[in-house]
């Protein structure tokens, strides 16, 4: 009897929290300033960005099913919101040269040092798992790309 009541409460709570808005950031498909749609990047770099960064650092997030189920949806929404706040690659062409250099240096440090993608992300996105070589090649790309900003 008692365990039944507890179950009812748990299920009731679970259903109840689904009604709380998660604040999931919107997906926008048309991004005229997007990095990948404006620049022909090396294939390896482009797919790394798409697979390991773009879900949180662009407007083109692809949400998995659990992004619609509370309470996990709250965490996903928070990560995407903060990711876009810190660096939104869909806005790339609107940044000044100085900002671009700041972001490229930041990407080199975060990815080179293994801080990004977040540890939890590749658990459900195996294609985002980066090898030492992937990281080194990416860091090298950030430097080449920075130099290219100034060559006309």
């Amino acid at each position: 009897m008692r365990s039944r009541i507890i179950w009812y409460i748990v299920i009731g709570l679970f259903v109840g929290i689904q009604l709380v808005p998660s604040g999931r950031p919107e997906v926008v498909d048309d991004n005229p300033n997007d990095l990948l749609s404006n620049h022909q990047l090396p294939e390896h770099t482009a797919s790394l960005l798409r697979n390991a960064c773009y879900d949180c650092h662009s407007n083109e997030s692809i949400y998995p099913w659990y992004a619609y189920v509370a309470p996990v949806s709250w965490l996903v929404s928070r990560d995407v919101r903060l990711g876009r706040e810190n660096l939104n690659l869909s806005d790339w062409n609107s940044f000044s040269k100085g900002e671009k250099l700041k972001y490229l240096d930041g990407m080199a440090v975060e990815v080179g040092d293994g801080q990004m993608p977040m540890i939890i992300y590749p658990l459900t996105h195996p294609e985002a798992k980066l090898s030492r070589e992937d990281r080194e090649a990416f860091v090298e790309w950030t430097e080449t790309f920075a130099e290219q900003l100034f060559s006309k």
């Binding site: 040269k97 100085g98 900002e99 250099l101 700041k102 972001y103 490229l104 240096d105 930041g106 430097e143 920075a146 130099e147 900003l149 100034f150």
Partner: peptide, 12 residues
């Protein structure tokens, strides 16, 4: 550091 890196870090 290379000037590109210096500028990026100063901006940060």
């Amino acid at each position: 550091l290379k000037i590109f890196k210096q500028i990026g870090k100063l901006e940060a």
